[in-house]
Structure formats: structure tokens, C-alpha cells
Amino acid sequence: MVTMMSTKLTKGGQTTVPKEVRTALGIADGARVYWSFDGRRAWVSAAPTDPLEVTGEEDFRIRLAEAKDDAAAGRVRDARAVSAELRARYNLA
């Protein structure tokens, strides 16, 4: 069952997450919330979606094509270099 609620959007683009939703999702004061958007609808959650989750064969093929395009365009970095950069930035061993 889906429950529909409404809130008002301020001029600054802010809205209030209804208490019933915050309670159900375990969202505490000051917590970060995550928005997802599929082109028609938006929804909020207490945890980010897993960007590595593949929802089916078509999704897999799309992601594979995007990865190939990124590699061909030079938008891919070596994982060891990224790891070293993060260790240096955060003073990790």
C-alpha cells in the first residue's frame, strides 16, 4: 500500500519530510537524506542507492557501453593512483 502525503515547497526549494516518513525511515534530526529521480518521479530515502546494483540485462548492457565510452574518452583513472591520492589526502597509512 502506498500512502500519499504532501508538503509545501519554499521559494528556496526546501520542503519538510513528514514526521511519519522520518519515523518509518529512521531519519533523525540533522541526518542526510537521498533523492532519486527517474525522469518522472522523485523519491527520498535514508540511505543512498547502490550505484553498483544492476537491475537487469538491459541495465548491465547500458552500463557496459557507458564504461567503454568513458575509457575511450579518457575519463577513467587507475585505481591504485586514486587509492594513493585518497590515502595521502586523509593521512592514512
Rank of each mutant, 00 (worst) to 15 (best):
R80K: 15
G12M: 13
R80G: 12
R87G: 06
T49R: 10
A46L: 05
S6T: 14
A71I: 07
R80E: 13
T15R: 06
A93F: 08
R41V: 14
A81W: 08
E20T: 08
R63N: 01
F37C: 08
G56H: 01
M1G: 15
R75K: 14
G30W: 10
Y90G: 05
T15Q: 07
K19V: 13
E57A: 02
R80S: 15
Y34D: 07
K8W: 09
A71D: 06
R63M: 00
R87E: 08
G26S: 03
F37T: 01
D38Q: 01
V54D: 04
D78E: 09
M4N: 15
S6L: 10
G56V: 05
E58W: 04
W43T: 07
E66Q: 02
A72M: 11
W43I: 08
A79G: 08
L9V: 15
D38Y: 06
T49F: 07
T49V: 08
R89M: 05
V54M: 05
E53T: 12
K8H: 11
I27N: 02
T3E: 14
S36I: 00
F60G: 07
G39M: 06
L25G: 03
L86D: 01
D70A: 10
G30Q: 12
T15N: 04
A24T: 07
E57L: 10
A65G: 04
R87A: 01
M1N: 13
M4Y: 15
A28V: 09
R22P: 01
L64F: 09
V82H: 00
A67Y: 10
V2H: 12
